[in-house]
Simulated assay, not measured.
Amino acid sequence: MNKNTLSPTTTNADAAEINKSWVCEAIRKINADYNRSSDTHLIRVELPCFEDITLYLKDESTHPTGSLKHRLARSLFLYGLCNGHIREGTTIVESSSGSTAISEAYFARLLNLRFIAVVPETTAKEKLDKIRFYGGECHKVPGKDIYTEATRLANELNGHYMDQFTYAERATDWRGNNNIAESIFQQMRKEPHPVPDWIIMSAGTGGTSATIGRYIRLNPEYYHRTRLCVVDPENSVFFPYFQSRDPSTASDKGSRIEGIGRPRVEPSFQPDVIDRMLQIPDAASIATIRWLESILGRKCGGSTGTNVYGALQVMQEMQQAGTTGSVVSLICDSGERYLDSYYDDQWVARQGLDLEPFLEKLRNICD
């Protein structure tokens, strides 16, 4: 008999010990996986036209599952395990536009758990294929229904709804433990301007911006110098909510920039740890990743374009003010996932987007 199989004489105490053993082994597997991974690279972007103002990009696309969401998925699994929500045989359910679901499918397979992703109907095929590659199941619904359908499925299957949009900001240890903020500041230590003037970050759940903003405030040497700017795409409510603080702010449209922007104010989004927000046109985001390919020699996802366009805007303001320093932003995922959308001229045309004015600005930025 398998040691985890309950016999007719198994007591509640025995069952508790069996579950404890499984949870301990699950946490060991996740920590071992983390220990096998090196930290993500911090790329210095060569833009000579910005004299003594340097842009750095934290390359989160090099995680095993290819995106920034790998960190979040690991934190959410540890959070669920340590809170007693995830046990042997628990079905994991998540509402996700793709990247978080890909990463959660990876960890679910690591723990031999069933995983179901409730995704918007418009999610890129490449992302759906990746979810399935890791053994996950895809349940497509209209974007506005992902929350209620994920809750329904979890209840029906007696599973656990991870609910990244609620738990992202509390599952991540913002005080340290090599979170993304601590990693950025450690990697910047030997640079000419080691304490960044700005960190530019887009928001999907709001968990990463909350982690970075809190970490900055925890460390006085950073709090006095570093500011956090969150950039938001079109059709997202985070930017208007930041201005109004009205939690009922909502949109009936979804974001074209996958992985960021939300049609409602998510519980994980923490506006009070943010110093500034910018709203970036979708055409600017897509134009930026096409321009950035000529700088980096590689394709990046749409949210990276949102980040970098915002970073360039901040750097131009620093240049005009005669200040020097460093700006850090993120490569969130690879552009290979978006060959049928952001890198497809016909898709761009169907969206009614004109990239040329922004491409011209970007091409002339160092002229």
Rank of each mutant, 00 (worst) to 15 (best):
T324A: 14
L278I: 14
A311I: 04
P271F: 04
A287C: 02
S268H: 03
R298K: 14
S268D: 01
E266Q: 07
I331M: 06
N307S: 07
D282G: 06
L330M: 13
D340I: 01
L278M: 14
D340E: 04
V273F: 05
P267W: 13
L312R: 12
G305P: 01
I289R: 01
M315C: 08
D275P: 06
E293I: 10
L296Y: 00
I286C: 10
T306L: 11
I280F: 10
A311P: 00
T323W: 07
L278C: 11
L278N: 07
T304F: 04
L330A: 12
S268A: 15
R337W: 13
I274V: 13
R290S: 07
D275A: 08
I274P: 05
P267N: 11
I286N: 01
T288E: 02
D272P: 02
Q320W: 03
E266A: 11
W291S: 06
L330C: 09
E336N: 08
V314F: 11
S326Q: 02
I295H: 03
C300H: 09
D275Y: 02
A283Y: 03
Q279A: 14
T324N: 11
P281F: 15
M277S: 12
G302N: 01
G335C: 10
S329E: 00
I280S: 07
L296F: 03
T288C: 14
G325F: 11
Q313Y: 11
A283F: 07
D333N: 15
G325K: 08
Q313L: 11
E336Y: 11
S294Q: 14
P281G: 13
W291F: 14
C300G: 05
A283S: 11
C332I: 11
A284K: 00
M318S: 04
L312H: 12
C332Q: 04
T306F: 05
R290Q: 12
D340R: 09
E293A: 14
S285I: 10
A311N: 02
M318R: 10
M318V: 05
G301H: 04
V273Q: 03
V328Y: 04
D282P: 00
I331Y: 00
D340F: 06
L278H: 08
E266G: 00
E336D: 08
Y338S: 10
G297I: 07
T323K: 15
V314T: 07
T288F: 08
P281V: 15
T288R: 11
R298W: 04
D272H: 12
T306Y: 01
V308K: 13
P271T: 02
S294G: 08
R298F: 08
F269D: 01
A283R: 02
G325H: 09
M277P: 11
Q313P: 00
Q316F: 04
Q313R: 06
Y309V: 06
G297M: 08
P281A: 15
V327T: 01
P271I: 04
A283D: 04
W291I: 05
M318H: 02
L339T: 09
T306N: 07
M277R: 05
Q279E: 12
Q319V: 07
V314P: 05
A287S: 05
D272M: 10
L278S: 10
E317C: 13
I331T: 01
G322S: 11
E293D: 06
